[in-house]
């Protein structure tokens, strides 16, 4: 595989929803790459468009409400947006798999978990009958479920939340995908379980040599698991960089704000800072830089209020979308 082509490369992606009150621009002109075998964390507040980006990659944006209006999603150099539905079906669950936030509702309550895993194996791997079931048992063992031969015949409601998320992971990985999209995989779980699941994901990623696009609102999760970070604010990417760089020196005021609102070891603080104001309504984004009403610099800057900064390379390997970022130029 050519080193220079990233596994997944999203270029100028825009996904809009058409509702009664107007057009919701859930994803606007978003570009980023996920490198082979690496983990990219997409970080942002809830409702900023992270999940819609993921659904756009999967081709699962609900047809009745929204669609991808512009851009390219290059997977191994092929544009996924140009594929037919049946071509996409061969990719979904096979080469690109996805796990979701709510393990409680993401599994079908009326089928055994074995049935649900086997379904994917049969579909993509062409393994039949007993072999598919033993593969399912094997996958369950791999994700750390005790007594998998018995568990495989149980229903989701007989399992705890953490176990269900393990089942989801087993289901996603059963066809050895090269890209895993994890949409807030640990948000709905207890803290101790969260750590176990993330640990498991890291381990499996190494074993199967896959890339992960991890969507999270938690910079801590990103710091521990990701190689690169893309920060999303109000449907736009505001900053991309390697994990080390972003924690070392965040360039965008929003990233800076996020970092300041994170508790840190060894630092004594009276209370955590938070970013003032709230996420803008996607129906009525502010003029200019979308962050300017909440930004300590932008709120008084004429240019920030009228012009929208484009994402631009500010240093080797990192980009930012802020007029005041170091290296942004004029």
């Amino acid at each position: 595989m050519n080193e220079n082509i990233p596994l997944l490369s999203i270029r100028n992606l825009s996904t809009h929803f058409f509702v009664e009150e107007g057009v919701v621009k859930a994803v606007e002109d978003v570009s980023f790459d996920v490198a082979e075998g690496k983990t990219l964390a997409v970080v942002g507040e809830s409702g900023c468009g992270k999940s819609v980006t993921a659904l756009s990659v999967m081709g699962l944006v609900p047809e009745s409400a929204g669609r991808v209006v512009d851009g390219q999603i290059l997977f191994r150099g092929d544009d996924l947006l140009k594929k037919t539905e049946s071509q996409m079906r061969r990719i979904r669950g096979n080469e690109i798999a996805m796990i979701f936030q709510e393990p409680m509702t993401s599994l079908n309550p009326v089928f055994t978990i074995g049935n649900q895993i086997v379904e994917a194996v049969k579909l993509h791997q062409g393994i039949k009958g007993e072999h598919a079931w033993s593969h399912a048992v094997e996958m369950l063992r791999k994700v750390g479920i005790a007594d998998p031969a018995r568990r495989v015949r149980e229903y989701p409601h007989q399992m705890s939340g953490g176990m269900r998320q393990r089942v989801m992971i087993a289901m996603a990985l059963c066809c050895w995908p090269s890209l895993l999209i994890a949409d807030e995989p640990t948000t709905a779980l207890d803290v101790t379980i969260q750590a176990q699941i993330l640990e498991l994901l890291r381990e499996l990623q190494k074993q199967q040599n896959m890339s992960v696009m991890m969507i999270t609102h938690d910079l801590g999760v990103a710091a521990e698991n990701a190689d690169d970070v893309a920060v999303v604010y109000a449907s736009n990417i505001v900053e991309t960089a390697s994990v080390a760089a972003i924690f070392e020196e965040p360039l965008h005021p929003y990233t800076q704000g996020l970092l300041r609102s994170m508790p840190r070891l060894g630092q004594k603080m009276e209370r955590l800072e938070s970013i003032g104001g709230s996420v803008p309504n996607p129906l009525h984004f502010p003029q200019g830089c979308k962050f300017h009403p909440r930004c300590p610099i932008g709120v008084s800057d004429q240019r920030c209020r009228t012009q929208q900064p484009q994402l631009r390379e500010v240093a080797p390997g990192r980009c930012a979308a802020c007029f005041h970022a170091k290296g942004y130029g004029d």
Partner: peptide
């Protein structure tokens, strides 16, 4: 959620609707 999961597995619309 389970409908989304089923689609994410790559199942066809027919299977998702008439099975899941």
């Amino acid at each position: 959620g389970y409908i989304r999961t089923a689609f994410a597995k790559g199942l066809s619309t027919r299977v998702v609707l008439f099975k899941h």
